[in-house]
């Protein structure tokens, strides 16, 4: 039983936790800056870039993916600008057009590309492959201290661990900057904070987190973790630090319960199949949000 857990659930759970916590922490600031859907947009827009990077390099290495995603994001910004300029329509309308088109293009590329060499399809893009991230070298708890066995952990783990460290480090160092530009941009600017730069930094961190998470867990869970845990936490407290801490708690809870439940949730209905772990994590985070929307202490605006 324990060995089974280590082999099949330990790595997915750890990877899921790092991703969920990373996205949730950033989500707090996106939510307060009324940019929660930025995470949604990112995961839509970067899909064609990621697919092309896969197709061209034939691997899921981090750098080609990041570069592909970055190029796709830059192209989207250019498209939006062009549409706003020449179509004379509002930026939000232009964004809507570009985001959905880019995502559609990504799906199209997925379907057209030769998936024999590239392990990627629509299913994978949406739900990731959390279940496939198994640790075959695990032979009991001793493996946790065995360098040889540890080297057999899925490489995705190190990638998401690095992004987790980057994001938490940046949030700690730039906490005051993020709070200041989120609460009062004009004051921040007058005090010498480069609002545009800090804002771009926050968006870039979100993009890095979304892209790094994408391969392992798919875009559904990324979107869910950016929005649901912070929104759940916001309804329960009026203190920012408490809110961030609670969002981490809810993100972790969603991952742990989601992964465990994905194996058993269909049992009562007579099926022995597992459901998608990523999908289940998203469902749990949604249930938590619904609960706090109904029972949360601060669910109503104060004034």
């Amino acid at each position: 039983m324990l060995d089974d857990f280590l082999m099949f659930s330990f790595a997915p759970m750890l990877i899921g936790l790092f991703i969920a916590i990373t996205c949730a922490i950033l989500g707090n600031f996106l939510l307060l800056r009324k940019q929660a859907l930025v995470s949604d947009s990112i995961s839509h827009v970067v899909l064609p870039g990621i697919v092309l990077a896969f197709v061209v390099t034939g691997s899921a290495a981090t750098w080609p993916m990041m570069i592909g995603a970055g190029v796709a994001a830059l192209l989207s910004v250019a498209f939006i600008e062009v549409i706003v300029r020449f179509g004379r329509i509002e930026p939000s309308a232009a964004m809507g057009v570009v985001f959905t088109s880019m995502f559609a293009l990504g799906v199209l590329l997925l379907e057209l590309s030769d998936t024999r060499n590239v392990h990627l399809d629509v299913q994978h893009a949406l739900y990731g492959s959390l279940e496939s991230l198994i640790w075959l070298d695990a032979v009991g708890w001793r493996s946790l201290l065995d360098p040889v066995a540890l080297a057999g952990l899925p490489h995705e783990l190190w990638r998401v661990l690095a992004v987790f460290a980057l994001v938490t480090g940046a949030i700690i160092v730039f906490w005051r900057h993020f709070v200041l530009i989120s609460f009062d941009e004009t004051f921040a600017a007058s005090a010498g904070v480069h609002v545009g730069l800090v804002s771009i930094f926050l968006i870039s961190l979100s993009a890095i987190a979304a892209v790094a998470a994408f391969d392992a867990v798919g875009s559904i869970i990324v979107i869910a973790m950016f929005v649901c845990p912070p929104a759940t936490a916001r309804l329960l407290t009026n203190r920012l630090k408490t809110q961030v801490a609670l969002s981490v708690l809810f993100a972790s809870l969603s991952v742990i319960v989601g992964i465990l439940a994905s194996g058993y949730v269909l049992r009562p209905f007579g099926y022995t199949d597992s459901v998608s772990a990523a999908g289940m994590i998203a469902v749990i985070s949604g249930i938590l949000l619904a609960a706090s929307a109904v029972f949360g202490k601060h669910r109503l605006a104060v004034n």
Binding site: L32, F183, T186, S190, T237, R239
Partner: peptide
């Protein structure tokens, strides 16, 4: 510099 009061979101959790 003290900006206009209405320029910020007073629902902010601080």
């Amino acid at each position: 510099y003290v900006p206009q009061r209405a320029s910020v979101d007073w629902d902010f959790p601080v």
